[in-house]
Amino acid sequence: MYYFLSHLSSTDIWYTSCVTPKLIGDLVQRKSISYRNYMSQILAMHFFGITEVFILTVMALDRCVAICRPLHYMIIMNRARCSLLIVSAWACGAAHSLSQFSVITRLPFCGPNEIDHYYCDIFPLLKVACTNTYVTGVLIVANSGMVALVTFVLLVGSYIIILFTLRNHSAEGRRKALSTCGSHITVVILFFGPSIFAYLRPPTTFPEDKIFALFYTIIAPMFNPLIYTLRNSEMKNALRKFWCQKTFLDERQN
């Protein structure tokens, strides 16, 4: 679990670093970006974003094995297999981003160069292209839709298997097993919900896109460390001790 979390945290750092510094800079100065930097941000965003999607899917499969086959867990999820799953996640992220990138780099641009978004996304770019982008939009939606469909099926399937297995457990066993999945389910909802709304639809843009994009570009990666940290009993005890000491000192000063 911690091996996968280390890769998830690394992906979160790189993922948010692709958009947050530029967003902060745009808030204090002229909002502009070169064509090369625009394309670079699209490539990086899709690479790290899809890699995070696959890492979250791998973590769901890991929880499924841990709960359904606890005695064989160390054999099934050995270090070699975990490394293979992580390498596959990074490779799938690279394949997806490169395929999207190869499609949009062929688009001509000769007219308006303003987009209604706070980071470089594909759909706003299609809107300002000087050609018919219907086929390109269909290819992009099909690519993103395939990724979303495969990962969604794996996620739902893993939790269905977990719930089916827990039928024969005691109430205490079910509570402990489901508590280990609570953090992962929270992260998946924060990340997948807005992402599905943004990419599983016809290639159009809406003013609400910026609000939903905040969840999967900034909010979800920012809360991931907090969500998983609060599952650690030692961290919870340390926080409880810190707040108790702070409350005691405040009362003593008063």
Rank of each mutant, 00 (worst) to 15 (best):
L43F: 13
I196D: 06
Y199S: 10
I160Q: 05
V87R: 04
R201C: 09
H96C: 13
E234K: 12
M1S: 11
S233W: 10
G193R: 03
M1Q: 07
M1N: 05
S10Q: 14
F109Q: 08
V128E: 06
G111H: 12
V103F: 01
N143Q: 15
N113P: 08
Q29E: 15
I86R: 00
F206Y: 12
Q41S: 14
V28A: 13
T180V: 01
A95R: 00
Q253H: 13
K31M: 15
C244S: 12
L230D: 03
A148R: 05
A142E: 15
R252W: 11
M39C: 14
T133L: 04
F197D: 04
I75P: 04
P203G: 11
A171Y: 01
L230A: 05
I160M: 06
R81T: 03
S10I: 05
S34G: 15
G25E: 15
K241I: 05
Y134K: 11
D116I: 09
P108D: 09
G193T: 11
Y73M: 02
A148K: 06
G193C: 10
L5D: 13
M222L: 14
G25C: 14
I219V: 08
L154S: 07
R63G: 03
W243L: 13
V58S: 08
P108A: 03
V187M: 06
M45G: 12
T165G: 05
